[in-house]
Simulated scan of single mutants.
Amino acid sequence: MPYHAWFTAHPHRPENDDVGDADPANIFLAVGQVTHAWECLESSLATLFTIVTESTTAANMMAFGSVLSSGSRIAMVNSAWNGYSWAHNKQNLTPNLNVLLSNVKKLTGLRNIAAHGMVANLENQSFTPAMNGDALGQYYIIPALYNTSKLTDRLGVKLWWNSNTILEIRDCINQTKFDIDIFTWHDLIESLQIVPPMRASASKSPTAVQEI
C-alpha cells in the first residue's frame, strides 16, 4: 500500500478531522491496530539489525530489544550499517536505508500520539468515552492532557483525529515494515545467502521458529 499523501509532505502528519466517530469503539479498535503494526515494524527493524551486525542470533535480537528508546535503536542500526556497508561494498544502498530509518523516525511520533492519546468527545468536552452506545457523539483521539507540547488549539488541544485517520497511520507503518523487509530479505540476505535469524535454530528447537 503506498504512503498517504500527508506522510510525504511537511510536517508528516495528518490534518485534524472535522468529523469525529459516533462510536468511540472505532477509535479503540484503530489504536489497537496501530500498536500491533508498530510491534511488527520493530520486529523487522530488529531482524535488520541482526543482519548488519552479522550475528543472526536470538541473543543479539534480545540485546537490541533491551534498548528502550526507539530513537536509540534506529541509531544502532545506522551505526552498524556504516561498518557493514563498507565491509560488504553496499554503500550504494545507504540512501535506501536512510529513507527507511527516516520514515521510522516520522512514524515514531505518530504511533506515540495514537498509543498514548485519550479518546475524547469534543462535542461535549467529555474525556470519559461512552460505553455500550451511550451518549454517542463526536469522538477523537487527542494527546493526553499532561502532554503540554501538544495542547494549544481546540479546547486546548492541538491534534484531534478520528478512526479513519488513525488507520492511515497504521497503513504507513505497515508500508514501512514492508519496505524494511524488502531491504533486508532481498537486498541483503539473498545477495549474501545469509541464514535468517531464528530459522537457523529450527532443527534444534522447533518451538524457536517464529515469523518475524
Rank of each mutant, 00 (worst) to 15 (best):
T56Q: 15
V19A: 05
R111Q: 02
N98D: 04
L100F: 04
P24N: 03
F49D: 00
G83A: 11
I51Y: 13
L93N: 12
N121E: 06
D18V: 11
D17Q: 06
Q91D: 13
L48T: 12
G32D: 07
H12R: 15
A58G: 13
G109K: 00
S69Q: 09
P95Q: 12
S70W: 10
M62A: 13
L122N: 12
I51G: 03
I27H: 01
G117H: 03
G32W: 02
G65V: 09
N60D: 14
L122Y: 05
H12M: 15
A46W: 05
S70Y: 11
I27P: 03
N103T: 09
L110Y: 03
G83S: 06
R111F: 02
S85T: 06
S69I: 12
I27V: 14
K105V: 09
T53Q: 06
S55A: 13
H12Q: 11
A63I: 04
Q33H: 11
A58T: 15
E54D: 09
A75G: 08
E39T: 13
F64C: 08
I27D: 06
K90D: 09
M61T: 04
S44M: 02
T35A: 08
T47E: 14
H88C: 01
N60M: 14
S69K: 02
A22E: 05
A22V: 13
W38T: 03
T57S: 14
E42W: 12
A37W: 02
I51R: 14
S85A: 04
V31P: 13
A22H: 12
A115F: 09
G65K: 14
E15R: 15
L29I: 11
S85H: 02
G20F: 01
V77M: 02
A46Q: 02
K106Y: 00
G71R: 06
N121Y: 02
P24D: 07
D21L: 08
S66Y: 11
F49G: 00
N112S: 08
Y84M: 08
H88R: 08
T53D: 06
L41V: 05
I113K: 13
V119H: 09
R73M: 06
Q91C: 08
G65H: 11
Y84I: 03
E42H: 06
G71I: 06
F49E: 01
N16Q: 12
T47K: 06
D17S: 07
L100W: 07
T108R: 04
S55C: 12
T50K: 14
T35F: 03
